[in-house]
Computed example of a mutant assay.
Amino acid sequence: MHMYGTHGLEIVTLLALLEYSILGAMVGRARQKYGVEAPATTGDPDFERYFRVHVNTLESLIVFIPALWIFSLTVNYHFGVALGLLFVIARIIYASGYLSAPAKRAPGAIATFAINAILVLGSLIWIAIKVL
């Protein structure tokens, strides 16, 4: 049995998607709070931080989700699921930091980048070794 039962990979994926959805709802609330009407994406700098957190998370998710699945199903399931949980935590750190002050986003951004790099490069190397 895999870590977190037989559905750890699915649970981590759904947690990442839930997190992204919550960030989207936060953008909606920030629109109201800061008076930024759709379709505008600029105006109040505080609103822009909420918007950037949401968009930057989407940019990370497009790499994360397929890389998570490939890594977990080919390289190491347990390590993949653990990296997936760390990704969700890294995005919380990123959002919290960025929303308090843009300069504070670095730890979460660096962790996100490192996790995605491990997933992508680890998968590529593993597959290359298997093919060769």
Rank of each mutant, 00 (worst) to 15 (best):
M3F: 14
E19R: 11
G5W: 01
G80T: 00
L132S: 12
T42D: 06
V55S: 07
E59L: 00
E19H: 11
F87V: 02
I92K: 00
M1V: 12
V81P: 01
G97V: 03
F87S: 04
F113G: 14
Y77P: 02
I62Y: 11
T42V: 09
L83Y: 00
P102I: 03
G35C: 11
I89M: 10
E37N: 09
A114Y: 07
L58Y: 12
H7E: 14
A38L: 06
L18G: 09
I22E: 04
G97I: 06
H54M: 10
Q32A: 14
T112F: 03
V88M: 01
A40V: 10
S96L: 11
K33C: 01
L85P: 02
Y34I: 08
I118M: 08
Y4I: 15
V120P: 09
S100V: 10
L17F: 10
I89P: 04
Y77C: 05
A114T: 13
L73R: 14
L85G: 09
I118A: 13
I89W: 08
V81H: 03
H2M: 15
V27K: 06
G122L: 01
R91T: 06
G8K: 09
T57E: 02
V55P: 03
Y20I: 04
L14M: 15
A67T: 04
H78R: 12
V53H: 06
S96A: 13
P107L: 12
V81Y: 09
Y4T: 13
A117L: 15
S100I: 11
V81W: 02
D44Y: 05
I65S: 02
W126V: 02
N116V: 10
A111K: 03
A38I: 04
Y4P: 00
I89E: 00
T41N: 08
G80Q: 03
T13D: 02
A16N: 09
R49L: 09
L119I: 09
A25N: 08
L15R: 06
I89L: 14
A117R: 11
P66D: 05
L86Y: 01
I93K: 05
L83T: 01
A40N: 14
K130H: 13
F47D: 04
E19G: 11
G43A: 10
V81R: 03
Y20L: 14
L83S: 00
A40K: 13
Y34M: 04
A101H: 13
H54T: 04
H2T: 15
A95L: 07
R52L: 04
V53I: 04
G122M: 04
T42F: 08
I11M: 08
V120R: 07
E48K: 02
L119A: 10
P66N: 04
E10D: 15
R52T: 05
V131C: 00
G8F: 00
L68D: 10
R29E: 06
L14G: 07
R105S: 14
E37Y: 13
G122R: 10
K130A: 15
A114F: 05
A30T: 12
V53D: 03
T74S: 13
V81Q: 03
I110H: 07
L58N: 01
H7V: 12
G84M: 03
A111L: 15
I65H: 05
D44P: 06
Y34D: 00
Y50W: 09
N76V: 07
L85F: 12
F47A: 02
